[in-house]
């Protein structure tokens, strides 16, 4: 008999338990192999032809007149995209947005219009061929009007200086919240039962009854 974490098990039970765990692991490995066999099919199903390889002439189109103000609302997510795409500000920052600006997962788009040029920018907005974006926006494409508005906003933002990074402020504010949590913790549990033995020892030492 062996004692394990408060429960008593015979050696035979131990062996049986181990054997069953091995069976589970073996079953899981088998499943893994089945998934492994299915994977090539799954990958074959996913469309992988990059849109960027299409000739630009096919993609270029005449966009309606865009409004920079409306583009900013779309970028920030205050006005939703018609087809349900996520707002740009979830991942990107840009000059001209109100505090606390957009995200930092993707690059800052303040000078994107200058970088891609008046011909490249509309194509980039239409195809959104950036690796992390294709899968997200393919089922939710931007409408021509939305693209025109965003383009006008990008053009306007490109004339402004880059927005300041908010990362230090966010980190500091989070750390401040953490300090508040520590104070709350101390206060809520102020009456907790602390170590009794330590207090007894300290008391005994203070009275000279115990040599350190």
């Amino acid at each position: 008999m062996i004692i394990h974490r408060g429960a008593i098990y015979s050696h035979r039970t131990q062996v049986r338990v181990r054997a069953r765990i091995f069976t589970w692991v073996a079953a899981a490995m088998e499943m893994l192999m089945v998934v492994g066999m299915l994977l090539p099919r799954l990958e074959a199903q996913t469309p992988s032809a990059p849109l960027s390889s299409q000739p630009q002439a096919q993609i270029q189109e005449v966009l309606p007149a865009g409004s920079a103000a409306r583009g900013r609302e779309l970028f920030a997510g205050r006005v939703r995209f018609q087809n349900g795409g996520p707002p740009c500000a979830a991942c990107h920052s840009i000059a001209g947005l109100r505090f606390p600006n957009g995200g930092t997962l993707g690059p800052n788009l303040t000078h994107i219009y200058n970088k891609l040029g008046p011909e490249g920018a509309p194509v980039a907005l239409k195809t959104l061929f950036f690796p992390a974006m294709t899968a997200i926006y393919d089922p939710h494409p931007l409408t021509p009007q939305e693209r025109a508005d965003l383009l006008a906003f990008f053009q306007q933002a490109s004339t402004e200086p880059s927005s300041r990074s908010l990362t230090p402020i966010v980190a500091l504010a989070g750390f401040g919240g953490f300090c508040i949590l520590l104070v709350i913790t101390r206060w809520v549990w102020r009456g907790r039962l602390r170590s009794v033995r330590h207090r007894l020892l300290e008391k005994a030492r203070a009275q000279g009854g115990l040599q350190a």
């Binding site: 996520p86 991942c91 995200g103 930092t104 997962l105 992390a132 997200i136 966010v170 989070g174």
Partner: peptide
């Protein structure tokens, strides 16, 4: 959460 913001938003789409 600090460097790749806003995680709570892009988490919903990724």
């Amino acid at each position: 959460a600090i460097f790749d913001r806003w995680g709570s938003l892009w988490y919903l789409r990724t």
